[in-house]
Design a protein around this nucleic acid. Structure first.
Lengths: 162, 162
DNA sequence: TTGCTCCTCACGTCACGTGAGGTGGC
DNA sequence: TTGCTCCTCACGTCACGTGAGGTGGC
């Protein structure tokens, strides 16, 4: 028999999820994301739909969560070992909770990044002024702070780089 | 003599920068961010203005850069070992380049996060529909995919969690 | 059958975490 | 002088990176 219907081998699965074989094997070891089944020879076969799960794990990592925390958050699926499916209301409640937590993290990160973007804009603006200024860099690394021309301190992103 | 003017010991510096002592010592070891000076007894004294540099390093890490890449990007300050300051135009050019690269990364991340936010919204919306649906979870972990009620496949964030 | 993909160890690395044991500074 | 902060090793951990040596699958 060939590849199970609608399944992917680890290489294609990794490519679609934007990651690599080592990472997938590590996730499996942690119980985060396992292949649906294995071939006779040990090849992993992943569900096509689980690419979404893989992407979610990666996105949650980018939001700063550790893999253990991610494991708890996305542990919403019925346990295959237990017979008798859990109450539906319980499942949907856990899924909702995971989605809301994810949304909270995303919103907070967007806000932080928008503040960063404003700061960079300010710094780029001030840099134009610096280029037209007669003051030269001093010995220390925070020269021109506060700006000896305007009396205002430098934008943070210039203090960081000057 | 006491603490040099306008300087912070490592604990306060870490607090203001949202990090800890171990991380600061590691950054120093890599040459990323060093204290302005040391006390007789070895205590590190950091410039107050370098809190901005610390925050920038942390923000660049959150954007997915490795410390080595961050080191190259923010290496814009005149080398204290070399005598004679480098041409001003060269410094401002490097600062501008670092700021523009940072802006590029921020913009890309915001776009990605906004797409994620839309997906989560979609999934939360669909979840309301699922709660009113008579279908129950099956054995496998991608039941209801494609949704057996509407014929549409589930939003990705539901495939990931169901 | 050939080449490409995959397998399992197992050691290495990056960015810190976490004490142990000792000393500095207002 | 007391307590709090800081110091330097040095081993541990998390999330992989990177081969070595071998086998599976269309």
């Amino acid at each position: 028999m060939g590849t199970p219907d609608d399944c992917l081998r680890i290489g294609d699965f990794a490519r679609l999820g934007g990651t690599n074989l080592r990472t997938l094997r590590y996730y499996e070891q942690l119980g985060l994301l396992s292949p649906m089944t294995r071939s006779e020879g040990g090849f992993r076969y992943y569900r096509r739909a689980d690419v979404a799960r893989l992407r979610m794990i990666r996105d949650l990592q980018a939001l700063g969560l550790e893999l253990a925390q991610i494991g708890e958050l996305i542990d919403t699926r019925p346990d295959p070992d237990s017979d008798g499916s859990p109450p539906r209301a319980q499942i949907t409640a856990r899924v909702r909770k995971a989605l809301l937590e994810r949304k909270r993290l995303i919103d907070a990160h967007i806000e932080h990044l928008e503040a960063e973007r404003r700061n960079v804009g300010e710094a780029l603006h001030k840099l134009l002024e610096c280029e037209r200024c007669e003051h030269s860099p001093g010995r220390a690394n925070n020269f021109c702070q506060p700006c000896s021309k305007t009396g205002n301190s430098l934008p943070n992103d210039l203090s960081a780089l000057y």
